[in-house]
């Protein structure tokens, strides 16, 4: 490689690398730093870690915020509840998405491309609008309750909006495309002759699915589940708009600590603990992506 080529490479890698270091990685340093500070009524609303006290520089880091989070049942419950809601929504999403992805992958062209577009299309419209649509449907005076009332199925409106149920519906609805796409990708690559061979060898349909289709689409299922589970755990908009006052989710708690209580250090500690909680699934996702996109080792042919 020429010197020019080397410099060009350095430039191509260096510019995005520097941007991401500065605006993606460095911010976390400050989150950690501020999570070790104390809140105060000032601008900015937290104490410095290094302060000059009596003419000496003094280290003033404190783990008090973390101790506070771990001792207060409210936060613990919010973490656990977030994990529960995210896990169950992921499961519901999977149950709806898998057959849908299968039906699309097995559809003939050009219908398949149209179906695929129809799955993706909603995610190109506003996320906020899609959550908002369910406010109109689930409200006590909403479309669904009016329908049920007019059909005489219920006597009084069901409490649907501002419940955990609405949160589940909202997450499944908005995250469905992220589950369908990776599963579709792994299913469409699957050689259907394998299924036919299994059927030919006498395997019943359920066995074909359990021992051939499912194992071969595992990568897609895993990617889809992580793509739903990780962001759903930290979800804020959906529990805020569809959930009730008692719907505890950690993303909402973080938002309230930050915007309502203006307690930046506690909000930072909440973020760090949430990140720690999601580190394992994120690592899993990273490894899965790396394995999926690893450039095929160029074999010295000939």
């Amino acid at each position: 490689m020429t010197a020019f080529g080397r410099r060009l490479r350095l430039l191509i890698t260096g510019i995005p690398f520097a941007w991401l270091l500065l605006f993606f990685l460095l911010p976390f340093v400050f989150v950690v730093k501020i999570s070790l500070a104390e809140a105060q009524i000032a601008i900015p609303p937290y104490t410095a870690l290094l302060a000059r006290v009596d003419g000496h520089w003094q280290w003033q880091a404190t783990l008090e915020n973390y101790a506070f989070l771990l001792s207060d049942r409210l936060y613990l419950l919010a973490y656990l509840n977030s994990l529960k809601i995210a896990a169950l929504s992921t499961l519901f999403c999977l149950l709806l998405a898998y057959p849908l992805a299968w039906a699309i992958a097995r559809a003939p062209q050009p219908a398949r491309n149209v179906y695929l577009l129809l799955v993706v299309l909603p995610s190109w419209t506003s996320f906020l609008i899609r959550v908002y649509a369910w406010m109109g449907i689930l409200g006590s005076n909403g479309y669904l309750n009016r329908l049920l009332l007019s059909l005489g199925l219920v006597d009084s409106p069901l409490p649907l909006l501002r419940t955990d149920f609405a949160v589940y519906v909202g997450i499944v609805y908005t995250y469905l495309p992220f589950m369908v796409l990776p599963i579709y990708t792994s299913l469409v690559r699957l050689d259907y002759r394998l299924v036919e061979a299994a059927r030919d060898l006498g395997a019943p349909a359920w066995r074909c699915f359990a021992s051939i289709v499912l194992p071969l689409s595992r990568a897609g299922v895993l990617a889809g589940c992580l793509l739903v589970f990780i962001p759903a755990t930290g979800e804020f908009v959906i529990p805020e708009l569809l959930g009730g006052a008692d719907t505890l989710m950690i993303g909402k708690v973080l938002w309230q600590e930050f915007f309502n209580n203006r307690d930046w250090p506690v909000a930072s500690a909440v973020a760090i603990l949430l990140l720690a909680l999601l580190l394992l699934p994120m690592l899993l996702y990273y490894r899965q992506q790396a394995a999926d996109s690893a450039p095929g080792r160029t074999v010295a042919g000939g």
Partner: peptide
């Protein structure tokens, strides 16, 4: 490895964390 991680992480990072961390960066 770090580069790859910084590309993959934003795809799944909860928005509240990204938002908070960037704000704290700008303030600091």
């Amino acid at each position: 490895g770090l580069f790859g991680a910084m590309i993959t992480a934003p795809l799944v990072m909860p928005e509240v964390i990204t938002g908070l961390s960037l704000l704290l960066l700008f303030v600091s």
